[in-house]
Amino acid sequence: MGAVRILLLAAVAVLATGCQAEVAGHAVPTGFVVKDGTQLRFRPVLAELPPGPPTGSATDRQSTDPATQQAAAQAFDCAQGKPDPLDGHDDPARPLVSCDRVQGTKYVLAPGFLGGDDVGRVDAAVDPRTGRSVISISFTAAGAKTWAEWTGQNIGKQVAMVLKSRVLTAPTVQSAITGGETQITGNFTLPEAQQLARDIAGG
């Protein structure tokens, strides 16, 4: 999947890779409720590092010092299947060095501003208008207010959805997102969209 961006269409925000999905037609939405609100966090992206082998030995992944953060990101081993020592025990009030274990991209993330308790439901389906696989995230009333305020103040910046210290996706905000619902579309099949929706909800 390539870079993800957020677009605003009427009252619904769309997070899209800009690539056509492989599945077309109609589908009944597959819904998931967040299982553990303490495990899902929305964190602003401070820096993004390309995939690559770990270098160095820095281990403080929650430092507030930018130089230490960069060193920790370079030293972090993002290989698939490798256990994460934090594994959901990160402090949401502090920065976090993490990665997307599918793409191998490493991130330096700011403290979280939304959590799983702010998400009402996550659904996956095929949009009959575009033929693209769509993941819809519905926020609670409080979550929708925070999301609208944050996106309105951070246009052009990335936000990471992090589950148990692992980045699931990190889109870029293109506009303020109001209305309480965000949609993710991209270069994935419907089963892949359903898996991402399931991951966002906590598995």
Rank of each mutant, 00 (worst) to 15 (best):
I184T: 09
K157Y: 02
V159W: 03
Q174T: 13
A193Y: 10
P171E: 09
P171Q: 09
K157Q: 13
I177T: 12
P191Q: 10
D199C: 14
K164D: 11
A197H: 04
I200V: 09
Q183W: 05
Q194G: 12
L196S: 09
T189N: 02
G156T: 03
M161T: 15
L163K: 13
R166V: 04
I184N: 07
R166C: 02
V173E: 07
M161G: 08
I184F: 14
Q158Y: 04
L168Q: 08
M161A: 03
A201P: 03
I200Y: 10
Q158D: 03
T178W: 09
T178G: 14
V162Q: 01
M161F: 06
I177R: 07
T182H: 12
Q194V: 12
T172Q: 14
Q183N: 12
A170T: 03
L168E: 01
S175P: 06
A160P: 00
Q174N: 13
A201S: 14
A160R: 06
K157R: 12
K164W: 11
L163I: 15
P171N: 10
G156E: 11
A197W: 02
K157A: 09
L190Q: 03
M161H: 04
P171M: 07
V159E: 00
E181L: 04
A170D: 06
L163W: 11
A201K: 14
G186A: 00
D199Y: 11
P191E: 10
I177L: 15
R198V: 01
K157L: 06
Q183V: 11
D199N: 15
A160Y: 02
Q174G: 14
I200W: 06
D199I: 14
G186I: 01
R198L: 05
